[in-house]
Design a protein around this nucleic acid. Structure first.
Lengths: 237, 237
DNA sequence: TGGGCGATATTTGTATACATCTCTTGTGCT
DNA sequence: AGCACAAGAGATGTATACAAATATCGCCCA
């Protein structure tokens, strides 16, 4: 699978490839710092500081910043940029929106997918089934990587530039950031992969309505319920 | 209503404000050239050429180009950028997507809109009702401006950064470009405004499901049916 | 003492020179 | 004649100097 130059790798471990364009390195570096809360929400993204941090000059840093703003990870205010802060309600919005957009993508894919693409999806499902659940952390990491690929392939199967573009912002603020809020969500790998199987059945059957609804359900099944924000555990008065 | 610096004005007549940032001038200039097919689809967006065209240097032009790519009006290919070509199927996708995204926005607005925002929407509807249909072209222009404001206010009424961000690409490729394909679509101002009234009723009633469906219907009612592309009129053999 | 005003410092915006990369074109060999 | 490789031109990527704008701080005055 070939990737756009500015698209971050699905594998969250691969970063700072020195052969990549400086603008890409800057983008990945700043993005990682935002997602890890190394740069906390609302903090000022000063260009010079980011230059030192990423080891480039202002031109690539500015390009990276514009992209982060376009993706919603940063906000613009009086010619200055700040790390966006995701309230729980904004995260809810992102889930609902993604359910609709990616649901529509599944609909289109059901009408346009090719046989090799179906095979690749089936392969990814098989790989996710084969994950050994013994080591929980390793299993989670593997699953997140394969899961990302599954969704990527499905988007590719739409063969639509516009759908790719619309998916960009909803994918940019990824699981890593959301986890801050969804703490303790079980993330059942087996159940999730059952949903993948269902989606693939619908898409392979060429049934757009079924595909759309299956995908919407899949996304919404991971939506956090309420707002368990900074609720320190302890006896209530 | 305050506007983001890089957001194009709703009024399509206001352009090339010399006091604006050079990057904004470049963005608006290139965008206008794309939408008017002055720069035809698939044509190469050479940076130096665009500098001469917009009267700025490469830095603002590059910023404008990145934004156009993010919005889907241009595509990137081997470090070069080209004007995107919208096939009829891509335009269909845009309509379906916008119906879902803006439908969801109407849902959220129904839960969060404030009284003054409701008043502004009502005022815009009244203004659209008051349009004199005698001069067809002037009426169309007025309607498109007010219509744009109506949709803008509704998005604002969501009070959500993420929704604003997601709406950006679907609004970027505007009516002007779509008209190339929807030629001869009647655009009934009265009927359209009746739909606006319906949407406002649903939103003001605080009924999210009703609001979402009313908006989806409104968007889809303008969706082109088939593909009447370069069908030269004439007797068929 | 509080507020308004202006100088200064900091930060971003723009222009441009230089580096790097890609594609083209031409030449020479097989 | 056709292919491969290399040299060149043209375009984009990066760094940096300078300009403009904004915020801060201190001072003066009421």
């Amino acid at each position: 699978m070939t990737r756009d130059a500015m698209t971050p790798p699905a594998d969250p471990g691969a970063e700072a490839d020195p052969s990549a364009r400086a603008a890409v390195r800057a983008y990945l570096g700043i993005r990682a710092a935002i997602l890890s809360h190394d740069l906390p929400p609302r903090s000022h993204l000063r260009e010079e500081t980011l230059c030192e941090m990423t080891g480039t000059s202002r031109t690539p840093v500015r390009e990276a910043l514009r992209r982060l703003v376009a993706e919603g990870l940063a906000t613009e205010e009086n010619r200055h940029r700040y790390v966006a802060d995701f309230s729980i309600s904004e995260i809810m919005v992102m889930f609902d929106m993604r359910a609709r957009i990616e649901g529509y993508a599944a609909r289109v894919a059901a009408e346009r997918i090719t046989a090799p693409e179906i095979d690749r999806l089936a392969g990814l499902i098989a790989a996710m089934d084969a994950i050994d659940l013994a080591d929980h952390d390793a299993a989670t990491e593997q699953f997140l990587r394969l899961n990302g690929q599954f969704h990527d392939v499905l988007i590719e199967a739409c063969h639509s530039t516009q759908i790719r573009i619309m998916m960009r912002p909803v994918v940019a603020a990824p699981v890593a950031m959301i986890k801050r809020f969804v703490m303790g969500q079980p993330l059942s790998i087996r159940a999730s992969n059952d949903q993948h199987r269902e989606i693939l059945r619908a898409v392979a059957a060429g049934n757009p309505d079924w595909a759309e609804m299956a995908m919407r359900g899949h996304i919404l099944s991971t939506r956090p319920r309420v707002c368990p924000l900074p609720a320190a555990p302890g006896p209530r008065p």
